[in-house]
Every structure is written in structure tokens, then in C-alpha cells.
Design a protein around this nucleic acid. Structure first.
Lengths: 354, 354
DNA sequence: GTCAGCACTCACTACAATGGAGTGCCAATC
DNA sequence: GATTGGCACTCCATTGTAGTGAGTGCTGAC
């Protein structure tokens, strides 16, 4: 309870998170150093850190206090300190400024988005690669949800006597398809008829708000096709969003850990799209941009941290970019990269929409 | 040159690959044992192997000969033997019978394909997961190439005043899209006109054989749109096939090796779609179904083996299923699984096509 | 050709000794 | 009273030294 046994302390506010200026500087230095070296850092190495111009003995005392308060930990008695999850948390909350990307990275981002074009999926895929390159982390990009996007065109294409393909184009340029099994043979004219009825029923509505029953056309065969197609549309609208996740640079997880078991369990998680998408959404919903260690509640990722950034398209959050790395990841760099890429991605998508 | 110094030898054919019956049995046992245990196997453990009813001393002599001929290797002097790439090669060429999947696996495959439906991409994705589950290897599925598939429908959907989306449906059910930048504003009617002209020009032809120039319509604006769209069509036809690769179970690579470096380099390769697709095609083109170690010429995969199986759709090879594992992977199981899944996948795709 | 026996090799393990980085504590100092 | 140099202590990591055992190659007998 005596976290601030020092005279100079800044506003001992609601929670006991406030730290001595020097203790902050020490914590800052430990985290920064450990992020770089992955080795426990001792009091000697901190003497020439900025904001810490005291002897190693004093640093030791402060470090002992920081350990008591749960910000630092010791792998073993005669080792240096490493940050705990709580330590990282304080670091990202109080010690990491807004921060900008390094010039090389800025250049990379600019070049990428200047040449971004074509299909949205391949662009998102490439964006995940870019983020991974920038940060040396595994990157995740969740594509814009099409929930609110309205139907711009529907089409029925016959592929076989009893098989048709429903092709839907949404206002944001997404194309979705769904094969429709037909109860009986339907010729091209009937399909075209059905497509017209379908268009009248669905155009301008979001997929999720399409009414289950379409008005009758008078022709029972056409009506059956329309009914099947409406079912298909509704199915598209309710399908899980997992198919819009792009993971890039998963090999970087292997570079981040030296225990092959950890790598395996993390990769296993990354293969489960639903888990990843849910994780990112959860973190975002809790108003966080960083989730460290146990904070995100996915056990196999206990030694990982997640950085998320929403993607705004036309004033609405429709996508997410995320980074996954070890808890000792480079937070300032990761935050800056995620922010910049998320923003530029949002801008690019907004432009494409109009 | 005296690889067959024994009286019983089977047709000392073109190359000196023929081996003593007993030596074959020993090699077989070593490979089988090593695949299971990942430990060098010694002469003692082989005494009760099938086809080897001799003393350990005799086995030692044979193993020494097998080592001289390059089929086996010793990690160090006083260790057992492990197979070399050449040893594995002999194993798969001469010692692995056609082989069938275990009943549980067969059941899994049956169940999977009985319920396979819907979009082709998601089915291929899930197929890669199935193969990975069956074999505990990383699985790769290359989707049917759309090179020969004919255009079934083309459509132009306006997304903005100067932006249209070209949506193409191919006869095999594939949907491709390409955004088209328009030089000037074009209204819906003109787009529909252009789409009609486009359809007349392209319908029934494979994407790759669409002529660069379409007949004039009389209206210069429409013609400009058609020209841009034809350009888009041809671009789709010539685009690299990389986007049709699905990799499943990449986490299994982490379980296969205990050197984290190896895992990283293999994962890096798996992220390069073009490399993987080229690799699979190369192996197939050389008439092989297995490529071991250095045989496939991708250095970072030197400690890996690849199993490939073509996917026949309507009497034509249009896709590939592949497995990637350590050179000590379970070849009989992998071959059986790849064969069964490849066949069933081909059948399912053929059915969907008609 | 096969086999039992034997000497030999060499990774693996356990154990003690050493060095060093880092700590906590304390008395002296500013 | 916070800071500091000094000091004893802890414990990991490294090195050196057997001892063990699995496995081999060789040889002479059958």
C-alpha cells in the first residue's frame, strides 16, 4: 500500500498506478531495454538511461519497490528484472507517447497505398503483409463488414440444369456468391425472370435486412427459384464474418519465441479465424488498443500481446487491423504502424466507395 | 558398384538401385521405425522386424553396406542409423504399396465430402484442413485453374460515377471481379449496353482467349467502356494463379521440428504462394508424387518432403493437393490420404460442374 | 553366410568447481 | 533523509571430469 513512499509523486489519483518520476523512468528504461535485448536488465545498465542519473544502488532500491508493486519480476534471485504484464501496461498507458513511424516505414506505407488498387481482398491481404514487414510481428486485417452495405446488383447464372449461382454485388464493391440447388430444371429465361424479381425485392437493402418472403410473380416455378435465392441471400447476410480475416507474416511468431511449443500453440490459434476475429473485436469493444498477456483471455496467447486499431470508413468503424507479437514487442513502433496503416487503409477504402 | 553381391536379387535393372531382399527389409524397418520414433535405430531393434530373422551382427553388416551405398547415415559413430534422402526415396519407390487410409480417416473423408457444398473457395479451404487433420502435416490445396473454363456471364455494376465493377462468372462456378476505372461518367443504361456487347464478345470463350478488340457498337462512350472492360477481362485471364492456394495446418510444421529456425524458414516459404504453387507444379510435371529433401530444389525446405496428387476434374488435371512434412513423415499414410482426398475432391468438383 | 563375443567409440547424464552478473543490506556521506 | 560505495550473498551458466550405455566394427568359429 505504500507505493508512493516518496515525496515527489504526481497526483495519487483513483488507482494506485501513479509512480514516482524516477521510478517511471526506470520502468521505461527496463521495458525499452528488454524489448531490444530480450535479456533481464540489471541496475548497472540503467545508470545512463535518460531520467535516471543516480547510482546503481539507488536504482536497485527503486527496482525492488517496482517489483513489490508488481511492475517488474525477477527470473531468479541473482538476475536482472523483466517487466510484468502490469509493467508493460503502465508503459503503454503512461510512457508511450503518440509516436510516429520511422521515415523508412512512412515511405513504405506511402508507396503501398499510392499503388493500392484493384480487388479489395487482395489489397487487404497485401496490407497484412505490409504491417508484418513494418513491425516484424504477425499482422491481422479484418475486412470491412458488409452488414450495412446495400445490395447493388443480384444475378442468377445457370451452371447446370438444377444448379444456379447467385452473385451479389454490394455497394462497397464486395462480391458474394452462393450456389442454389434447384428442385427442378429451370431454363435461362425463367432464371432471368427470377433474377429480376429478386432485384426488385433486394436492391438497396443490406443483406441482413432482406425480408424472407418475396411478392409472388404469378409463375410457380419462378417463385420457387426466387424463394430459394432469397434464402441464399439471407444465408449470405447471416454468415459468420470469419472469411474476411487476413493473416500476414505468421512466420514471425517463430522468430519471436524460442520454445517451439509456444510457436505451435500460437499458430494453432491463428488458424482459427473465428477466435482471432472475436479476440480483436473484444479488445476493441473494451476500448483498448493494446491487450497484454492474460488481458485478452486467450490462454495459448498468454505470452503474447495484441495491438488493435479500428479502420474508419466514411465515419464508421468497419474493419480492424491488428498486430500479434510477444509481450516484449516493440509497442511504440507497433502502435505507430497500426495507427498509420489503419488510417490510410480507411481512407483508401472510403475513396473506393465513392 | 557391387550393390548386389547377393545371389537373390531382383532384376538388376537400369540403375543400381536394386537391393537384396533382406537389405530391403532392413531399410524398410529402419525407415518405418524412424518415422515413428524420430530416434536413430540400432541393430538390436531390428531383429524382430518382419523379413529380418537374423542376428544383430548380420544386421550390422547389412547396415554398414546400406550406409556405404548411401541409403542410411549415422549421426555419430556410436549411434543407430537414420535414413538418407536416398533411403526414403527407395522406401517410397519400392517398399510402399498402394496402401489404404485407416478406417477412421476414411470415415472422416466420407463425412466431409458428403457434406461438401456451397462455395468452392471455402470448400478448398476446408479440404486443406481435412488433409492436415488426416496426416498431421501441413496441407496445400491448389484450386482448379480457370484457364480453360469458359465465360458464362459478364456483368458491369456501377459503383460510383467513374467506377464500375466487372463481374465474371465462369462455367465452373468461379466468380472473378475487377474494378474498372472509367474515363468519364457513364450512366446505368450505357453500362448495361456495354455489358451486353461484352457478353456477345466474351461468352463461351475461356478468359485467356478473349480477343483484345471488340466489334464497335456505334456509340463511342459505350465502346470506351467495352474496351476498358475487355482489358479487365484479359487481365483476369493472365493474372498469376497464386490466389488459388489454400494452406492448412501450418502449425503442424512447428510440431514436426524442434529447431525453431527450421520452423521459421519453412513458414516463410509457405507465405510465398507463388513459390509453393510452382513447387507443387514442378514436382507434378516431373511425374513424381513425392519429392524428398533436396529433390525439389527449395533450399529452406531441405529437411522437408512434399507429397503431391493431381486433382482430375472431367478427365483433366486442374488442381493439386499436396502435403508438406519433415522428410521423416509418414509416407504411406500421406500418400493414401492425398490420393483419397484428391480423388474425392476431383469427383466433387466434377459433379458440381455438371 | 551367419553368429557370438569383444574391444571400442561417443553421446548423454550427473556432479563438483569456477566465474560473474546481479542483488539486498548497511553504514557513511552530502 | 535520500543517496551512495562497499560487501556478502545468491544462483545461473559454464567448464571439467568421470561413469554409463547404446551402438558399432571386427574377428574367428560354425
Amino acid at each position: 500500500m505504500t507505493t508512493t513512499d516518496d515525496s515527489r509523486h504526481e497526483g495519487a489519483g483513483a488507482d494506485a498506478l501513479a509512480l514516482d518520476v524516477r521510478k517511471s523512468a526506470i520502468l521505461n528504461a527496463v521495458v525499452t531495454e528488454y524489448i531490444g535485448s530480450a535479456q533481464p536488465v540489471g541496475s548497472q545498465h540503467l545508470m545512463d538511461a535518460p531520467g535516471v542519473s543516480v547510482s546503481s544502488a539507488t536504482i536497485r532500491a527503486d527496482m525492488a519497490a517496482l517489483e513489490r508493486d508488481g511492475y517488474l519480476a525477477q527470473p531468479h534471485t541473482s538476475a536482472g528484472r523483466i517487466p510484468t504484464d502490469k509493467g508493460y501496461r503502465f508503459f503503454v498507458d503512461h510512457l508511450v507517447g503518440p509516436g510516429a513511424l520511422d521515415p523508412v516505414g512512412r515511405q513504405q506505407v506511402r508507396q503501398f497505398f499510392d499503388h493500392a488498387h484493384g480487388e479489395i481482398e487482395s489489397m487487404l491481404e497485401k496490407t497484412s503483409g505490409l504491417l508484418a514487414d513494418l513491425t516484424d510481428c504477425t499482422a491481422m486485417v479484418v475486412g470491412p463488414s458488409h452488414e450495412t452495405s446495400t445490395v447493388r446488383s443480384v444475378q442468377l447464372v445457370g451452371l447446370g440444369p438444377r444448379l444456379a449461382l447467385l452473385v451479389v454485388v454490394l455497394a462497397d464493391g464486395a462480391v458474394q456468391k452462393q450456389s442454389i440447388d434447384l428442385a427442378e430444371e429451370v431454363d435461362e429465361d425463367r432464371l432471368a425472370d427470377a433474377a429480376r424479381h429478386l432485384a426488385a425485392h433486394a436492391l438497396g437493402h443490406p443483406l441482413s435486412q432482406i425480408q424472407p418472403s418475396a411478392p409472388n410473380s404469378g409463375d410457380p416455378v419462378t417463385d420457387a427459384v426466387v424463394a430459394a435465392a432469397v434464402e441464399g441471400l439471407r444465408h449470405l447476410g447471416s454468415s459468420e464474418p470469419g472469411d474476411q480475416l487476413f493473416v500476414g507474416g505468421s512466420s514471425r511468431m517463430a522468430a519471436a519465441f524460442d520454445a517451439v511449443d509456444t510457436v505451435r500453440s500460437v499458430l494453432t490459434i491463428l488458424e482459427q479465424q473465428l477466435v482471432v476475429v472475436t479476440l480483436l473485436r473484444d479488445v476493441l469493444d473494451r476500448g483498448l488498443s493494446v491487450a497484454i498477456g492474460a488481458e485478452h483471455g486467450v490462454e495459448p496467447l498468454a505470452s503474447c500481446a495484441v495491438v488493435v486499431m479500428p479502420v474508419w470508413v466514411d465515419g464508421e468503424v468497419t474493419g480492424t487491423v491488428g498486430l500479434l507479437g510477444p509481450t516484449r514487442m516493440n509497442y511504440p513502433q507497433a502502435l505507430a504502424a497500426a495507427r498509420v496503416v489503419g488510417n490510410r487503409l480507411g481512407e483508401t477504402l472510403s475513396e473506393a466507395r465513392r
